[in-house]
Amino acid sequence: MSAIYRRRYATNIIALTLSGIATLIGLTFLAWILWITISRGISAVGVPLFTKITAYADQGGLANAIVGSMLIDLMAILICAPIGVLAGTYLAEYARRTKLGSVIRFLNDILLSAPSIVLGLFVYVIVVLPMTSITNGSVSFSAFAGAVALALIGLPVIVRTTDEMLQLVPGTLREAALSLGIPQWKLTVQVLMRASGSGIATGVLLALARLAGETAPLLFTAFGNNYMAYGLLDKMASLPVSIYQYTNDPNPAMHAIAWAGALLITLFVLALSLLTRLFFARKKVNHD
């Protein structure tokens, strides 16, 4: 073998080895982070975690944060799911090739990766500040504001999946329905949405997985609360924000509770995204 062949062969081997190493590096970090979260979180998981509230931190509870997270996330999904599905339907059914459609699609993709802390500031300015001045300060930070902020994070995910899922529905289905004289709104709601129902539902779950782990937008919208709160206009604790506060605390006992909360969130989010992945594996649609 001449020198040039040997060199090309060697370059090839080196490059392929490096690419294998790169993959190992990625997997190592995943394993490292998951291992730490599970091993440190599991020891603080117990009954008190679900029954005691954060006001008495020495009792090791996150009950109010867990309830708060569930309420805020649920509200956020209730806000962004209908809007997102309808907006996605508009893009797929009415604006597939129009200029407005492509502009909205483009901006939706940008919103998908926009910094969540800025969305938190946005909601602070349009929800928290007006509420404070209307009620003379008796209502400021609120669970509702937190839900709006999280809804903004879930919205683009739902818009995009709905748009893609509806575009997958074969055109013959539309033509068959229209030829029977069905109005377009009925076609959309009763035929197309039903045909792509599981895909749209997957989009909603994906959005939930995305917004459930968000901390930054909640810091100055839902704020936090050491006591149990159920009111829409109350300050409300949430798991991510409580984890954030506990991590900042110098007391190591707090860190243990923070890890337990971290474990809960991580399990929830990873389970959701694996679940949706199973759905998607059948649908074959990109969803980054």
């Binding site: 995943l30 979260t37 782990g213 968000e214 954030y244 991590t247 971290a262």
Partner: peptide, 16 residues
């Protein structure tokens, strides 16, 4: 597995 790295909430990255 690599894409799961993207699913881990950022606060977990912060703690880790």
């Amino acid at each position: 597995a690599i894409e799961l790295l993207a699913a881990i909430p950022s606060i977990i990255y912060g703690m880790w």
